[in-house]
Write a protein that binds this DNA or RNA. Structure first.
Length: 477
RNA sequence: GGCGGCGUACCCAAGUGGCAAGGGAGAGGUCUGCAAAACCUUUAUUCAGCGGUUCGAAUCCGCUCGCCGCCUCCA
């Protein structure tokens, strides 16, 4: 609310109530929707990891102008559209590792609550009805504009709002809209109609989280008018502060411009997942701070893929070491690794405590990766060395668990890459080629061995010769 | 016009008062039959520019330039 970072202290100690604006189910989701979902998924996971009991509500708007328009165009009822795109949404989210919210209410299941809130606002003098519509009277709320830091005069003078002559002010916004011919409707004290955009969040958040709660989130483009109006309604209705911390994520940009439906410069999640592994997309979204804009490009996604590959390569190396390390105690150069291991969790917590700095956290992960690689390069052996390496891999997995990345085995990662890169080669064929090459290598027929490697490389497969075996992986990037 | 944000190496990016994380790319090296991976060295005496505050600023203040967002549906 202050527009600054503040120390976090929930209204009820140990419990966090969080409401995040979900989607309007009228079309498939693009990467911008994914960012918002991933950001709040991380916030929830981290708060839980820190021991808070989190109640997360994420609504789905299943009735609004765009849904109605789409339904009319496809000649189906609005609920068919809403259902279809809600299902698509869940499919996308699951791919990206975004968990379900605790409560995922639909607007149309809460018409009664909304009507009650609207009636209350009328009774308190904050709203008025007009030919079956009901409007919130912005001028009645002195603090209107405090979230988006706008004042009413500026808004009025700059108003590009379509003027409805009968509204008392052009800024007054609809709580209830009378239905036109052929539109879906619900019975109300003001006649047949449907709810305005903002009222569902007011009604549903108070139903599930109470009049005041801790965190309200959504994309930065929702600050005005949506969240401003939502807060106006809620505070006018309850007389209590609505939300303690507003959290808004920044945009995805394409050529520096906001990715959006209206500009048409968007990429759907589905499209992107045809070219990139889901984990790559999630990782990419964590490489910049959640409030910063993040530029979408193939270069960025490719770099994310390379980073993840570096992680899994190291995991493989760790696994090999644990399987083959001898029992003779040989310490290796472990000082730097031990130092970092000791400090690692604090560093991670510090970064995440500071407004969920995932980019910084990822940096620490790669510092640790380098240190463990250095340690392994020093050819240690024995149980102490193993323990250090085990501790490292547990730490890495633990952090990965909080961010919900790095949770595959390297084999799963490479299989997944094979699929997404459409490499037409079965694992069986691949192993056959490798065996063939091993024969050649045994016979020191280097030309033949190199030919096989070259052949596979052309298909996107990299071979790595180890002590007695040859491992394969998919070329990242 | 009002409000808000951003500008850090070749690219991405963290850092918001005490000698500039991390990833990618480039160059050289170690290792290897050759590779790959990994590691090492190297690439910002400097953080858009100009002033100011301070023992000390990328970090605070002021101005200038450039880019973007919101003010209308939008994650």
């Amino acid at each position: 609310m202050s527009g600054k970072k503040e120390d976090f202290a929930p209204l009820v100690p140990g419990k966090v109530r969080m409401y995040v604006c979900g989607i309007t189910a009228y079309d498939v989701c693009h990467l911008g929707h994914a960012r918002s979902a991933v950001v709040f998924d991380i916030i929830k996971r981290y708060l839980r990891y820190k021991g808070f009991e989190v109640t997360h509500v994420r609504n789905i708007t299943d009735i609004d102008d765009k849904i109605i328009a789409r339904a009319a165009k496809e000649n189906v009822t609005y609920d068919v559209i809403a259902k279809k795109y809600t299902d698509e949404y869940y499919r996308d989210m699951e791919m990206l590792g975004v968990g379900r919210a605790d409560l995922e209410p639909n607007a149309t299941d809460h018409i009664r609550e909304m009507i009650k809130t609207i009636q209350g606002l009328i009774d308190k003098g904050f709203a008025y009805s007009l030919n079956g519509d009901v409007y919130f009277e912005v001028g009645k709320l002195r603090e209107y504009g405090k979230l988006s830091k706008k004042n009413i005069e500026d808004l009025v003078s700059g108003a590009r709002v379509e003027v409805n002559e009968r509204k008392r002010s052009p800024l007054d916004f609809a709580l209830w809209k009378a239905s036109k011919e052929g539109e879906p409707w619900w019975e109300s004290p003001w006649g047949k109609g449907r709810p305005g955009w903002h009222i569902e969040c007011t009604a549903m958040s108070s139903k599930y989280l109470g009049d005041s709660f801790d965190i309200h989130g959504g994309g930065a483009d929702l600050i005005f008018p949506h969240h401003e109006n939502e807060m106006a309604q809620s505070e006018a209705y309850t007389g209590k502060p609505f939300v303690k911390y507003w959290v808004h994520n920044g945009f995805i940009t394409v050529d520096k411009e906001k990715m959006s439906k209206s500009l048409g410069n968007f990429f759907t999640i589905k499209e992107i997942l045809e070219k990139y592994e889901p984990e790559v997309v999630r990782y990419f979204l964590l490489t910049a701070h959640y409030r910063s804009p993040i530029e979408f490009s193939d270069v960025q996604l490719t770099e994310a893929e390379l980073s993840i590959d570096r992680y899994y390569s190291t995991v493989t190396r760790i696994k090999d070491f644990l399987e083959t390390a001898g029992t003779t105690e040989k310490p290796g150069t472990s000082a730097d690794l031990e130092k970092l291991l000791a400090a690692f969790k604090d560093k991670f917590h510090h970064a995440m405590n500071d407004d969920f700095n995932t980019a910084s956290s990822l940096g620490f992960i790669f510092e640790l990766i380098r240190e463990v690689n250095r340690f392994l390069d020093s050819k240690p052996s024995g149980n102490n060395a193993k323990e250090l390496v085990i501790k490292t891999s547990e730490l890495l997995a633990g952090i990965g668990g909080v961010l919900n990345i790095f949770n595959k085995t390297p084999e799963e990662w490479y299989r997944s890459l094979m699929k997404v890169k459409k490499i037409e080669l079965s694992e069986e064929e691949l192993l056959q080629k490798i065996a063939q090459r091993q024969e050649a290598r045994k016979a020191k027929d280097w030309a033949c061995a190199d030919a096989v490697r070259k052949e596979l490389e052309a298909k996107g497969i990299i071979l790595e010769d180890k002590k007695d075996v040859t491992a394969w992986k998919v070329k990242a990037g």
